[in-house]
């Protein structure tokens, strides 16, 4: 509707001015003699600009835009690639860390086992040595006791002989004395034990 109104108005204006033009002055736009120079130079100028645009400007701009788009896309791809590589590296690192931790734990366990085995062996050795020393000591004590016991019998005989000689005034029968001392010792020992 607006377009139609504009059309009517414009045609109306043209008509009015055409009438004015006939009277002289008026609208230069309606001077038919000026049409061919304008049309000719319009064709020349427009064709020239069209050639510049289609042959130089459009290829130059589209090439630049495409190159920029490719560059941006390339950078984005590179960034994505780098990101992926970083993630892979992190995963590898974490896996290695976990492996190392596991290995360390295994080593510790083994070491602990070895340590306790060695300790047990040393303990056993010490135990054996101490037991042997105790045994030796006991043997030595037994020997000394036997010696003492043997000395005790001789001493008893001497004492018996002296006592007998003082009481009776003569030397006792050696064999009988030894027998008495032995039996008394045996009896005493039996009684004390």
């Amino acid at each position: 509707m607006r377009r139609a109104l504009l059309l009517v108005a414009s045609f109306g204006a043209l008509g009015v001015h055409h009438a004015l033009a006939a009277e002289g002055g008026g609208m230069p736009q309606l001077n038919v003699h000026d049409y061919t120079p304008q049309l000719a130079w319009l064709a020349i100028a427009f064709l020239a600009l069209y050639l510049v645009m289609s042959q130089i400007a459009v290829p130059a701009v589209s090439e630049t835009l495409a190159r920029r788009q490719a560059k941006i896309q390339g950078d984005l791809d590179a960034a994505e690639q780098a990101n992926r590589q970083t993630n892979e590296l992190i995963a590898t690192y974490e896996k290695r860390l976990a492996d190392a931790r596991e290995a360390a734990r295994g080593l510790l366990r083994e070491q602990g086992e070895a340590d306790s085995a060695a300790a047990a062996a040393r303990f056993q050795e010490l135990h054996d040595r101490l037991a042997k020393q105790i045994e030796d000591a006991e043997k030595r004590i037994a020997a000394q006791r036997d010696d003492v016991m043997a000395g005790l019998a001789g001493m008893s005989e001497d004492i018996g002989r002296d006592v007998y000689a003082r009481l009776i005034g003569e030397a006792p029968d050696q064999a009988a004395l030894s027998g008495k001392v032995a039996s008394a010792a045996a009896q005493g020992a039996g009684g004390h034990r």
Partner: peptide
């Protein structure tokens, strides 16, 4: 008539 006019001048300047 293809005379060079003021109109042509400004068309060429625009181009």
């Amino acid at each position: 008539d293809v005379s060079f006019t003021n109109s042509a001048t400004w068309m060429i300047i625009a181009v």
